[in-house]
Write a protein that binds this DNA or RNA. Structure first.
Lengths: 190, 190
DNA sequence: GAACACACTTGACCTAGATCAAGAAATCAA
DNA sequence: TTGATTTCTTGATCTAGGTCAAGTGTGTTC
């Protein structure tokens, strides 16, 4: 029987069944209630998690407002990569927006995955490179698209976010205001 | 005697002298004249280069304009990571904006660096993670900063670009127009 | 089923930054 | 040196999207 996690790992990585099980075995379930923090700015992020259900918001507090950097949903990984990899203080807050279940691997296990699974280092590189590419696209969207185009792009690719998350957070991660999204929506109803 | 490349590798990576020389030995000089293309959209990027001198512009052609994604200067690496790592068609054009010398490693050697330098896979991961973090900051700048703030940030961190590159390209990579930069400059002279 | 808290919409107005057009400067070419 | 190009600045105007404020749902809670 395959867990969600193994199933997900398989779609991303070319592991055989044994490696799959080996990697997955290091992840332990962790439960977050709505409002709980997975990570707070300034702490060290010593874990990486796969989201089984629920959703997490990555954001930063500024003096006068907060900025949502991304919302992580079911089937994706979440961590503060810079903090995990470089052992630097976390830049982001990560908070559950609903009751959430994640599978978590601790940094000490994460750092030793390569000892157990020879393919791990290459796989990990591919994974991080994939994340890099995603961010490249996101930068490009700010350089080349209007608010409406960015909204449509997100809506097509992450429809699940829109059904579960208050508009203000979606707007923030798109670099616009909730009012603007509201107007885009009305316009699209003709 | 250390080459620029070895020197640079050393500042980023914790290689000993032997590994440094081993990695550097795979890089061969390549000369680009102003206007030459390092890479064109749709081709496969089968190399990674370190810029010894000169500068390269990464950009995309849209129907009605072009968008500059980044300008790479002396002392940095350049490639299309997605194309190199996933063997996908390049998304970007990369063109020399001045006579440029780079040290280039071919994909076949790059893919085998781990065989010669055991530390390579970990090092490479750290490097790509660092690039990821840089892009995260860039996304954040679009979510949280005004045109003037983004301009100042780039000016502080990459002053060399401003002395060598026409304004229109800098403006594009900042997501604003050349006129806006011109006005920001005047304002800052009081 | 009031009263309250949130989320979302809508309108009126405002502003950062874009667009367009015309000049200055600087750079290059011969 | 002079003309030709390209780059940069400046002004006038416009507009996408922001801000502010007032509704309108739609749950929740007691």
């Amino acid at each position: 029987m395959m867990t969600d996690l193994e199933n997900y790992l398989q779609t991303y990585f070319e592991f055989d069944q044994a490696d799959l099980a080996r990697v997955a075995s290091f992840f332990k379930p962790e439960i977050l209630k709505k409002g709980d923090y997975y990570l707070k700015t300034g702490k060290f992020c010593n874990k990486l998690s796969f989201i089984k259900s629920g959703l997490l918001r990555i954001y930063v507090d500024l003096e006068d407002r907060e900025v949502t950097q991304w919302i992580c949903t079911q089937g994706y990984f979440v961590t503060d990569l810079a903090s995990l990899v470089f052992a630097s203080p976390a830049r982001w807050n990560i908070q559950a927006m609903a009751d959430t279940v994640v599978y978590t691997i601790q940094k000490e296990d994460y750092d030793r995955l390569g000892d157990y699974v020879p393919k791990w280092p290459v796989t990990e590189k591919l994974f991080i490179a994939h994340c890099f590419t995603t961010l490249e696209d996101r930068v490009f969207s700010f350089l080349s698209m209007t608010a409406e185009q960015r909204y449509n792009l997100l809506f097509e690719s992450h429809r699940d976010i829109f059904t579960q998350v208050p508009l203000q957070y979606i707007a923030s991660m798109l670099g616009m205001t909730p009012e603007t999204i509201s107007r885009i929506r009305r316009k699209q109803l003709n």
